[in-house]
Amino acid sequence: MELRHLGYFVRAAELLHFTRAAESLYISQPTLSVHIQQLEEEFGSPLFARIGRNVRLTEAGQILLDRSRNVIRELELAQQEISSLQGLMRGTLRIGALLAFSLEMVPVWLGVFTKAYPEVHVIVSTGNHHDLERGILDGNFELAFSFLPLESDDLAYTPLFEEDVVMVVSADHPFSKHEHISIRDLEHIPLVLPSRQTNTRRKLDEFLVEYDVHPKIIADVDDLHALLTMVRIGKVGTVLTRMAVAGTRDLATIPFGKASEKLMAVAMWDRRAQTTPAGEAFLEVVKTHCGIEPSKST
């Protein structure tokens, strides 16, 4: 068995689609299938159940996926520790982030980090808050960037900055000229809102209960791009963090005035796992950019 074969298996298991997995690995789909078949022969058990065009992990496949992630992470950690002994910084760093972070902030952090540590390969994935927490606990990410509150006690975090929660409408919407709106104004505009799995939505729901406001919610959308498209083309509004619409010229953001709400942005990681030198270095870049004291974590 070769380590790269485990890497191929992990990618196929994560995507549950051999063609897309092969494309992401820059190998052919038949080559990937051969490597998976070799693993199945070596373990004496099928790792995937193929039902028509659908693929799912078998029980044996799930066991191997969990173990393989740990093996790959430990080897990456060993590589970085050995490199640090030699005064070098090499290896792979996997981070996750809400899409809102990836629009502007993550590229800035990456630019600073990769300039200082060009031998570290950084893999960035986006997802909702639940996916990011699960990704850290499963060993898919070393660091992730989201908003409080956290669901798992196994996660540690560093506060980064507070972010405004704002109303978002199209630039030609009547509300777009307002300097601020009240929470009760939400009852006078149809809303398309982010998924209830997001901390922005959870904060909004608390907000609505606190002020006894009952808006007309016509859709819950878990994709940010689709959500913003609906706001652009319809006479609807949404509620997001200001950073989620950074750089857009055809949308207007309106704060909630006296009832203004904020979310705390954080960097989070698994408190049970050892942080790699690359992870520590990336976190220091983020803290410096956000003006956070290096030792401030929870």
Rank of each mutant, 00 (worst) to 15 (best):
I189L: 10
P190G: 11
P190W: 10
P190T: 13
V192G: 07
L193G: 01
L193R: 01
L193T: 02
P194V: 05
S195V: 06
Q197P: 04
T198E: 09
N199Y: 13
T200N: 08
R201D: 06
R201N: 14
R202N: 12
K203V: 11
K203T: 14
K203R: 12
K203F: 06
L204V: 15
L204Q: 04
L204A: 06
D205V: 15
D205Q: 15
E206H: 13
E206Y: 09
V209I: 12
Y211D: 10
D212N: 14
H214L: 07
H214N: 10
P215E: 08
P215G: 09
P215T: 09
K216E: 14
K216M: 12
I217L: 02
I217Y: 04
I218W: 01
A219F: 03
A219W: 00
A219L: 15
D220A: 08
D220S: 12
V221I: 15
V221R: 00
D222H: 09
D222Y: 04
D223V: 10
L224K: 04
H225A: 02
H225K: 06
H225M: 02
H225G: 00
A226D: 14
A226I: 12
A226K: 13
L227V: 05
L227C: 03
L227Q: 04
L228F: 01
L228H: 00
L228K: 00
T229R: 12
T229D: 11
T229K: 10
T229E: 11
M230I: 06
M230T: 07
M230Q: 14
V231K: 00
V231P: 02
